[in-house]
Design a protein around this nucleic acid. Sequence first.
DNA 1: CCATGGTTTAACCGATCGGTCAATAGATTT
DNA 2: AAATCTATTGACCGATCGGTTAAACCATGG
Lengths: 226, 226
Amino acid sequence: MSAQENCDEMANSISETKNKRRKLVDIRHDNLQQIMSVAEQLFAQRGYSGTTISAIAQSANLPKANVLYYFKSKEALYKAVLEHMLVVWMKHMDEMTSDQHPRDALRNYIVQKIKQSKDSPNGSKIFAAEILHGAPFLREQLETQLKQQFESTCQVFRDWIAKQWMDPISPEHLLFLLWSSTQAYADFSLQSSVLMDKSKLDDSDYEAGIELITRLVLKGCGISQI
Amino acid sequence: MSAQENCDEMANSISETKNKRRKLVDIRHDNLQQIMSVAEQLFAQRGYSGTTISAIAQSANLPKANVLYYFKSKEALYKAVLEHMLVVWMKHMDEMTSDQHPRDALRNYIVQKIKQSKDSPNGSKIFAAEILHGAPFLREQLETQLKQQFESTCQVFRDWIAKQWMDPISPEHLLFLLWSSTQAYADFSLQSSVLMDKSKLDDSDYEAGIELITRLVLKGCGISQI
DNA sequence: CCATGGTTTAACCGATCGGTCAATAGATTT
DNA sequence: AAATCTATTGACCGATCGGTTAAACCATGG
């Protein structure tokens, strides 16, 4: 009983600080989480081939064989990380709807996307690297999920144009610019700071990025900023 | 003499179609070129760690040991490719000067940069991947060459602002947007075509990209487009 | 034509990779 | 408490990696 009380329903992040008696379901959950977390970090830093299972295991404080117990192969682990990131990456796109005014919708999208680049740069980097190398592990999802999201967002832009809420610009290329310019704050984060004489980008830098992108997009699309 | 005449000064790309009698200087030049060319392609497709010397050798139709005769290590070859790309990548930036009108200078920069993304996407991808992973092999050059170029270009923007040729926007973040939005047409080239239902992007797509970025930048910075 | 030196190449090497396996330890169910 | 399931782990394996070596090959200058 005295051991049981520590175990029952304490929702610790690691579910149990010391290794007294942990439920199997918690062990599984924690280890999966831990492995995917460090895998995300390492894949972002060194790419797929540059990351070894040993390195992941070491960072996660687990023996290598234990990592392969939870993920049957390196590829499976990488795909798990990737697919998780795809969801996160697409998340804010469907928040833009035809009935919203583009002024608010676009501004909000840019804010959310830059915040994402700031808060989870690793995931963003993995995703970008995957695209860059021709999406060998993600081709299928791109051709279905992302393509669908892409087309529906382009349709929103077309609706705004039809309502004359914005000038008739190419929806596809506008979306490319939104993706790339916001993504840059994740990809270039390390180097931006070098160029700007800082150890790392601070809040005001991300604010300035938001402001500039928003300004260019809204003015460029002929959308009143107020 | 009949063999000599084919050899002397024919500036063929491969300097000699058949392997009759080639000057040592030509052999060296051709092999270096060939190796770096296929290395660029493979590094872009599979990243640094994902590319093997064997694969490079095979693509270049040379034995592996021969590749290592010209480049003492994989890292040396990669750095050679990278440094060559850095020069190309920075090339068009110093064509923008304070006395030019931003309307012409910015438009020209965007055109050149997109053309570069279109004509040599592999080099652009390698460069982007290197930045993405924290520039482990390029840190020094970034901190010197690129930083210098970055600052001088920002100064050009500031001069334009002082002359009231454009609105007072952040030069640093404008440059980030120019880099990322044009670079995207190299990085996303494969996926863009998937999203737009094509086998590959055609000239009109790059034209549309140029037009959109130019429009957004010029209007967003308060620069008259005519 | 010969000596020199740049070029080519197969064979080889230690290290490390992703992945397997079997033995064990611990949790859960009955 | 016994039986069953899940989790942990060290030892191991074949494949492949980047890189070395030494011998043959061949263009070049005298």
